[in-house]
Amino acid sequence: MRSAIEVENLSFKYMGSEFFTLRDVSLRVDEGEFAVIAGATGCGKSTLFKCIIGLIPQMYQGDYSGRVRVKGIDPSRVPISRVAQLAGLVFQNPDNQLFALTVENDVAFALENLGLEREEIERRISRAFKIMGIEDLRNKSPFELSGGQKQRVAIASVLALEPEILLLDEPTSSLDGATAKKLLDELREINRRDGITVLISEHRLDLVLREASRLIVMDEGKIIADDDPRSVVRRLLSEDYDAVELPKLSKIAWSLRLCGDGAIPLTQKEFVGLMLRCSR
């Protein structure tokens, strides 16, 4: 498996801050993965994303040590616009990343900035609209969109750059449950169908975990767990770790000692299977 993102011994302290926001973080995400980062607020998730994309140390100065590679490229040394074409970052608040007065212009914005030819822009934005299923929003103004639609446009505008990696920082935090679930399912679909590597920070673990290939947990700037989701959930349960909200059925299975040394269930189906075995 080729690596998409490599982070080695990364530490970072914002200028003027007393604490290191990232402390000796090492992480490797392979091509095609759907990796989830979880952690309490202020654990350093957003800062890590900014390091991967090069905003740190290029836009924010501070104590920076360690090594980051995105598809073999050092994001601290090349223009961010180059990193952005390899790894697209979607921020939490869609209102602060949509600038244009029509959806179409918003999705074309980055491509125009790169100076691409009109036919190429047209081709790429059509593809991005199709991937996100928002062709019907094309001529709308951003004021006419709902929260979920705005977030979809924000993702499309990043996908238009045709990155191989998609980074999403809490994309569902302002969405209601049904909308969030739909968006997360779609992201999983994009990952599978279009082969885009996804690294997403998300707190609704019950919705995102069962499809994830990896779960990374951060706490106070450190990675405290990084493995397949079932192993991580088991470990967090055994340590009674409460900063992230684990799926309730995993908690129940653990409390009732349903799984013994076996795998912790993440889906209802798995849970029912365990119940059937235990009640026999």
Binding site: K50, I53, L55, Q58, M59, P79, I80, S81, A84, Q85, G88, L89, F91, N96, Q97, F99, E104, N105, A108, F109, A110, L111, E112, N113, L114, G115, L116, E117, R118, I121, E122, I125, S157, V158, L161
Partner: peptide, 17 residues
């Protein structure tokens, strides 16, 4: 931040759709 990742000012010859 969003402008940076959207390549604002990346090309001196910006095009328009």
């Amino acid at each position: 931040e969003a402008l940076e990742v959207k390549c604002f000012g990346a090309s001196s010859r910006r095009t328009t759709l």
